[in-house]
Lab assay of single mutants.
Amino acid sequence: NQASVVANQLIPINVALTLVMMRSEVVTPVGIPAEDIPRLVSMQVNRAVPLGTTLMPDMVKGYA
């Protein structure tokens, strides 16, 4: 099963993503693939993302 990107903490809106904010985990439904974590660094989410939430492509500005 493919690992997805999961919030490692509350990720506020309009804050640049850092490695420490994200972890990889096998979850259902599948979200952004874990291998895209380096690409996500410095991008921003378009809504607050609670701890443990799977990041979906539509949550990250400029990802999709």
Rank of each mutant, 00 (worst) to 15 (best):
A48C: 14
V30L: 14
K61M: 13
N46G: 08
N8M: 10
I13M: 13
G52R: 04
G52F: 04
L17Q: 00
M43H: 11
N46V: 13
V60D: 02
V20A: 14
T53L: 11
N1D: 15
A3C: 13
M59P: 01
M22R: 00
V6Q: 03
V26A: 10
R39H: 08
V26C: 08
S24V: 09
T18S: 13
I11R: 02
N1F: 13
L55C: 03
P38C: 10
D58Q: 14
A48Q: 13
I32T: 03
V6E: 01
A7V: 07
P50N: 09
T54W: 03
V45F: 03
T18P: 00
A48M: 08
M59G: 03
V5E: 00
L10C: 14
A48N: 09
M59E: 01
V60F: 06
P33I: 10
V30R: 06
G31K: 00
A3F: 09
V45S: 07
V45Y: 03
Y63D: 03
A7C: 04
G31P: 00
E25L: 06
P50Q: 09
S4T: 04
P50H: 06
S4E: 01
D58S: 13
G52H: 09
E35T: 14
M56W: 05
T28C: 14
M59D: 14
I11A: 01
I11M: 06
E25H: 08
N46P: 02
T53K: 07
A34I: 06
Q9T: 13
D58T: 08
S24Q: 11
D58E: 13
I32D: 01
M43Q: 08
S4Q: 01
P57C: 07
V49P: 01
I32R: 00
P57V: 05
G62N: 12
N1K: 06
D36A: 10
N14K: 06
P50D: 09
V5A: 10
M22G: 00
M21T: 02
G52Q: 04
V27H: 03
V45D: 00
T28W: 07
V41Q: 06
L10T: 11
G52N: 15
M59V: 06
N46C: 15
A48P: 13
L17A: 00
M22P: 00
L55I: 14
M59A: 07
V5W: 03
I13A: 10
R23E: 04
P33Q: 06
M22D: 00
T28F: 10
I13W: 10
D36R: 06
V60T: 01
A3Q: 12
P57D: 05
I13H: 15
V45H: 00
V27P: 00
L55N: 01
A16V: 12
L19F: 14
D36G: 05
I11S: 01
N1T: 15
G52M: 04
M22F: 11
L51G: 09
V5P: 01
R39V: 11
V45T: 13
E35S: 12
E35R: 07
R23G: 05
P12F: 04
V26F: 09
R23S: 06
L40C: 04
A64K: 14
V60C: 03
L10H: 15
P50K: 09
V26W: 13
P57Q: 08
G52D: 09
N14I: 03
A64D: 09
V15T: 15
I37N: 00
A48I: 13
R39Y: 10
Y63E: 04
